[in-house]
Write a protein that binds this DNA or RNA. Structure first.
Lengths: 220, 220
DNA sequence: TATTTAATTTAGATATACCTAAAAATAAAC
DNA sequence: GTTTATTTTTAGGTATATCTAAATTAAATA
C-alpha cells in the first residue's frame, strides 16, 4: 500500500507518539505534533484507517496496526540513512538536517535505500544517536548515558542528544561538539555541576550541567 | 518565486522544447511531452505566467522568460548533480536514474546542492554526457563525437549517449559500456560498419554500427 | 444525575492539479 | 472566401489536503 507524503507524515507522528505507551493517541495530540488542526487530523485518520495503517475508532483515539508500524519504520529508516549521508558525506550540521530529511524521507525506492545503506557502511545509528531500523524494521540498541554521568578522567564517544531543539544543536555546532567525537572528563565542578572536557584529544571546553545532561555518550 | 513540483515539471518541459528553436511551444506539444491533457496544460500555463516564468498569449503559444530560464537551469542542475551522485557514488545504472532524479530534482536547497556539488568534485557533465549548469546557469561544452567516427587504433572516453531509451541503456549496462570508460578501436568492419573495441584496456567487444552511432566519446 | 466543559467530528470552503465534454479561436482545405 | 478540421480554451467535476465554524460526543464537575 502506497502512501502520500502527507499520509506518511501522519503515520510517523502516530507511531512516534505511540512508542512506549499503553493507551491510544488523541486527535488533539496529533494536531499539536503536526502543527495542524484537529479537523484535518480526523480527515486523515479516516484515510489511514481505510488503508489499513491504523486502528481508529471515532472519539476513541488511534494506534498503528502491524502494517502501519512496518511502514513507519521504513520511513524512519529512509530519513535516518539520509541524515547519516548529509552529516558524514556532505558535512552538514545537525541543525541543518531537519528540513532536508523532512523531504528526502519520502523518496521511496528500495534500491536507492539499499545502495545508500551500503555506501554509508550499514550505519546502525543516526547522527543524533538514535538507532536506524534495518530492512526488517529491527533496531540495534546500545547503552547510552548522559555525558553528565561520566566521572573524572572517564572517556566516551558522543553518540547523540536528548534535546533536538535548533538552539541547542546550534550551540553544539558552535562549541565543536559533534557526533563521533571523543571526550575526556578533565574536571567536574561540585557546586554547579559543570564539567571541563578534553574534546578530540585536543581542545578544552567548559559545559554546563544542563548541556551535559542533554548529550549522550557511549562510555568506554 | 517558489514553484511546486508540478510547476517545475512544466517549466522544465517548456524550456527543453524551446532550446534551439525560433517559434513558441504549443499546448498540444507540451501535453504530449508531459503525458497529460491539453486542458491541464492551459491551466498550468496561466499559473506559470502569473508567476513570471513564461510568456503566454492565449492561442499563440508559450516561451520561457529570463526568470523562467534561470529557474529551469536550476532544476536541471539539481537533477544532473543527483544523477552524478547516483551513478558515481551509489553505482546505479543509467536506466535506473530517471524515476529517482524525477523526484530528487525537486528537493530545493541551495546549501544541499552546493555541498553535493563540492562532494562530487564539481562535475561538468552528467552521466549521459550532457553539460551541468553551474549556479549561474552557465554550461561547459566540449567536442563530443559519435563512437562510430573514431578511426582504427584511435582512443576515446565515453561521455554520453544519443539515445536515452531504456532498452538501449540496458544493453550498454549489460555490455559493460559505462560513462568514463576508455575505448580503443581494434577494428572497423567495412561491409556492415560494425566495430571491435578494447574496453578499459582489458576486454574485447563487438558493437554494431547502430550502437556505435548512439554512443558519444571525447576523442583523445 | 444533570450540566458544563473539553475533545472530536461533520459540514462546507479553499487551493492544487488533474480530468471530460463543450465552446471558441485558429489554421487548413476546398 | 467559406467551410471544415484542428487546436486551444472554458466550464464544470474529481481527489488530495488543508481550513473555519457548527454540531456532536465524551469527560468532568457540581
Amino acid at each position: 500500500m502506497n502512501l502520500t507524503s502527507a499520509e506518511e507524515n501522519y503515520l510517523k507522528g502516530i507511531y512516534s507518539l505511540g512508542v512506549g505507551r499503553n493507551g491510544d493517541i488523541s486527535t488533539n495530540e496529533l494536531a499539536a505534533l503536526l502543527q495542524t488542526k484537529p479537523a484535518s487530523v480526523t480527515d486523515m485518520l479516516k484515510k489511514l484507517a481505510k488503508k489499513g495503517m491504523i486502528s481508529y475508532v471515532k472519539y476513541q483515539g488511534v494506534s498503528v496496526t502491524t502494517a502501519g508500524k512496518k511502514k513507519a519504520l521504513e520511513i524512519t529508516r529512509r530519513r535516518k540513512l539520509w541524515e547519516v549521508f548529509l552529516v558524514e558525506k556532505l558535512r552538514l550540521q545537525w541543525d541543518e538536517l531537519t528540513e532536508l530529511s523532512d523531504e528526502l524521507e519520502h523518496v521511496s525506492s528500495p534500491l536507492l535505500m539499499q545502495r545508500l545503506d551500503e555506501y554509508l557502511g550499514y550505519p546502525k545509528f543516526d547522527p543524533f544517536g538514535d538507532p536506524i531500523p534495518n530492512e526488517l524494521g529491527e533496531m540495534s540498541d546500545h547503552p547510552r548515558v548522559p555525558l553528565l554521568d561520566l566521572s573524572f578522567e572517564q572517556s566516551g564517544k558522543i553518540i547523540g542528544v536528548n534535546d533536538n531543539s535548533s538552539s541547542f544543536l546550534k550551540y553544539l555546532d558552535k562549541a565543536g561538539i559533534f557526533i563521533g567525537v571523543k571526550v575526556l572528563v578533565l574536571d567536574k565542578v561540585d557546586f554547579d555541576g559543570s564539567m571541563e572536557l578534553l574534546i578530540d584529544n585536543k581542545r578544552r571546553q567548559f559545559i554546563s550541567k544542563e548541556v551535559a545532561s542533554n548529550i549522550l555518550v557511549m562510555a568506554y
